[in-house]
Computed example of a mutant assay.
Amino acid sequence: MHYQITDWDDAYANGAHIPGAEDYPPRWSRQAAAFRPGHRPLPLGRGHLFLPEGTPRGLMVFVHGGYWMRFEPSVWSHLAAGALAMGWACAIPAYRLAPRARVAQMTTEIARAVAKAAFNVPGPVVLTGHSAGGHLAARMICDGVLPDRLAARIAACVPISPLADLRPLLRTALNDTLCLDPAEALSESPALLTPRQGIPVTTWVGASERPEFIRQARLLADVWAGLGAPTECVIEPGRHHFDVIDGLADPDSPLMRCLLGQIAPR
């Protein structure tokens, strides 16, 4: 059967295809608020840096999603739980949202936040992010984004449901806010850029997500494999776009084992 998009807005609409979608944002906020009193974060600009008990084994960075136009770090505090339980620090950086900032500016802001967090936490660095945050996590390991010394510390990158090719978004109503033009869509699409060599990349996506998100996850893994990166694409059964991140809060989840389970401190 041929796969063809005829309605780009529907192809990238998640909530319309998830039962009870409207309940997820307030649930995330409640879980995050309940988590913070027992795990007081350090400030990371407008973001948060959570530290485990004892010396951190390394740093995990989680970049939140929301189509580059919604949410802020305090909504996602509870997703640091898995990393902390495994002895890792967890940074949840902030970035200015569209339309106040362009996607290219967000890439620069996240790069600065990663550098600041890594300055405060020694050891290996693992990058992850969800949806638009998956895009930004992947951008961090494209050539020329991070300083070489910091890039040498990155042990893995796991973009979750990433938007790897931004060109289709030019055809959506989302672009009324994002204000992408063709040049920026090209220059900010990880799948159209060259990854740094030697960093394992696992794209992670829910099997019940919109076909476009599965295609985009596969695309990034396939294209970067062709450019010499060690890649894998995991399609997690039973997960959709809003619950595919739940595993970050569980140190025993397949997602957390992929992220941190095989990485030894340096």
Rank of each mutant, 00 (worst) to 15 (best):
E188N: 13
A104V: 06
C142K: 11
I92A: 01
T172K: 02
L146I: 05
P168I: 14
R96L: 12
A132V: 07
C90D: 03
P190D: 12
L219I: 01
P99I: 00
L193I: 01
M106P: 03
G133L: 09
A183V: 11
R149N: 10
L146W: 04
P200E: 08
N120C: 12
L192N: 00
P99N: 01
T172H: 08
A91S: 07
W88D: 04
G144V: 00
A89D: 10
D176W: 03
P147M: 04
L127T: 10
C142D: 05
Q216D: 15
V125M: 04
R167D: 04
G123T: 13
A207W: 01
A225T: 11
V234R: 15
I110R: 02
L178Q: 11
G134V: 12
C179I: 01
R139T: 03
A115Q: 13
A118W: 00
H130R: 11
I110W: 06
L97H: 07
L180F: 15
R218H: 15
A151C: 14
Q105E: 15
A115Y: 06
A113K: 00
H135S: 13
A191H: 07
P190K: 11
T107I: 15
L127F: 02
E212D: 09
R139F: 02
P147I: 02
Q197T: 12
V114C: 02
L227M: 14
G123Y: 13
P211K: 12
E109M: 09
P190I: 05
I141W: 00
A185K: 07
A91N: 06
A207G: 05
E188L: 04
I154D: 01
T231H: 08
S161V: 08
A118C: 05
V103A: 01
L180I: 14
T108V: 11
E188V: 06
A104S: 14
A132Y: 13
E184Q: 14
L146H: 05
F119E: 13
D148N: 08
K116I: 05
P182W: 05
T107R: 15
G206D: 07
H130W: 13
A155D: 12
C90I: 11
A225G: 12
E212A: 10
R218D: 14
G133P: 12
Y95N: 09
G228T: 12
L180Q: 12
P122Q: 12
M106L: 01
A221K: 15
W224Q: 12
R218W: 06
T194M: 03
D181I: 14
H130T: 09
T203H: 03
P190N: 10
S161F: 05
I110V: 15
I199H: 02
P230N: 09
A115L: 03
S131D: 15
P147Q: 09
L146C: 03
P162Y: 00
I154E: 01
T177C: 11
T172Q: 04
I92G: 05
I235D: 02
A91F: 03
R139L: 10
P190T: 10
P190A: 14
G206S: 06
V205S: 11
R167I: 07
F213S: 09
T231V: 11
E236Y: 03
L227F: 05
T128P: 01
N175T: 12
C179G: 06
G144P: 11
P162C: 00
P182S: 11
G206R: 02
D143R: 10
R218M: 05
